[in-house]
Simulated assay, not measured.
Amino acid sequence: MSTTRPCPPPDGQGPRAEGATSAEPPPDRTPSRRLHLVGASGAVPLSRDFTRQALHDWGWLPAVSADHRAAAEDVLLVVSELVTNACLHADGPEELRVIRTGKVLRLEVTDLGSGTPSPRTPHRAGRPGGHGMFIVQRLCLDWGVVRRDGGVGKTVWAELAAPS
């Protein structure tokens, strides 16, 4: 089931402070990676490559089975959809965060947009465009939006199951 309810990040830290650029996990914390995207050219392929490398480093890739391959492909598709939505509807993404917690992988895309993403209803498969959040809803365990204090900007998050 997918919702648009706010949900605190698994490490309880919330979106990172502006200016932080570390791509390495802090010691004794949940493994995570951050990619600064402000002004980045080709944000979607850059985000996919960044996420693919994290999946490789965490043992999801190379895939050892069809299920593992499908799980990794789902993660890369959801990253593409979240970053694309930030590009199209929120003046571009600020940051991508990929977080591994046990059996769940969490993706977070932060932007300065004020809108709230939602699946287009009713969903019409043959209609061009508008499929991004429908895909996120279908592939993820859960997803939601966390608004920044002050009302400017948000983090759209999605959680996917690790391959079994």
Rank of each mutant, 00 (worst) to 15 (best):
M1R: 11
M1V: 15
R5G: 05
R5C: 03
P8M: 06
P9T: 15
G14Y: 09
G14M: 12
R16N: 01
A17I: 13
E18L: 13
G19M: 05
G19D: 06
T21A: 08
T21M: 03
S22C: 03
A23H: 11
P25L: 11
P26H: 07
P27W: 03
D28P: 05
R29A: 14
S32P: 03
S32R: 15
S32V: 09
R33I: 03
R34A: 07
H36L: 05
V38W: 03
V44T: 10
P45E: 11
P45L: 13
L46C: 08
S47H: 06
R48L: 14
T51W: 04
R52D: 08
L55P: 00
L55N: 01
D57K: 07
G59V: 08
G59H: 12
W60C: 01
W60D: 03
P62Q: 07
S65Y: 05
D67A: 14
H68W: 13
H68S: 11
R69E: 14
R69G: 07
A70S: 10
A70Y: 06
A70W: 10
A71I: 12
A71D: 01
A72K: 06
E73P: 00
E73D: 15
E73S: 13
V75F: 01
L77T: 15
V78T: 05
V78A: 00
V78N: 06
S80A: 15
S80H: 11
E81W: 07
E81K: 14
E81P: 02
L82E: 06
L82K: 02
L82P: 02
N85E: 07
A86D: 05
C87A: 12
C87S: 15
H89C: 03
H89T: 09
A90T: 04
A90D: 09
A90L: 02
D91A: 11
G92Q: 04
P93W: 01
E94F: 00
E95Q: 15
R97C: 07
V98P: 00
V98E: 02
I99L: 12
I99W: 00
I99C: 14
G102D: 10
G102I: 06
G102Y: 07
V104Q: 10
L105T: 04
L107G: 06
T110E: 11
T110D: 13
T110H: 02
L112C: 04
G113A: 00
S114P: 01
S118I: 04
P119G: 13
P119I: 12
A125W: 04
A125I: 11
P128H: 13
H131I: 07
H131K: 14
H131S: 14
M133E: 03
V136P: 01
V136M: 08
Q137A: 12
R138G: 05
L139P: 07
D142E: 13
G144C: 09
V145A: 00
V145E: 02
R148D: 08
R148G: 03
R148M: 11
D149L: 11
G150C: 06
G151W: 09
G151K: 08
G151Y: 05
V152D: 07
G153W: 00
T155R: 07
W157Q: 04
W157Y: 14
A158H: 05
A158R: 03
A158W: 00
L160K: 13
A161C: 07
P163V: 14
P163E: 01
S164W: 07
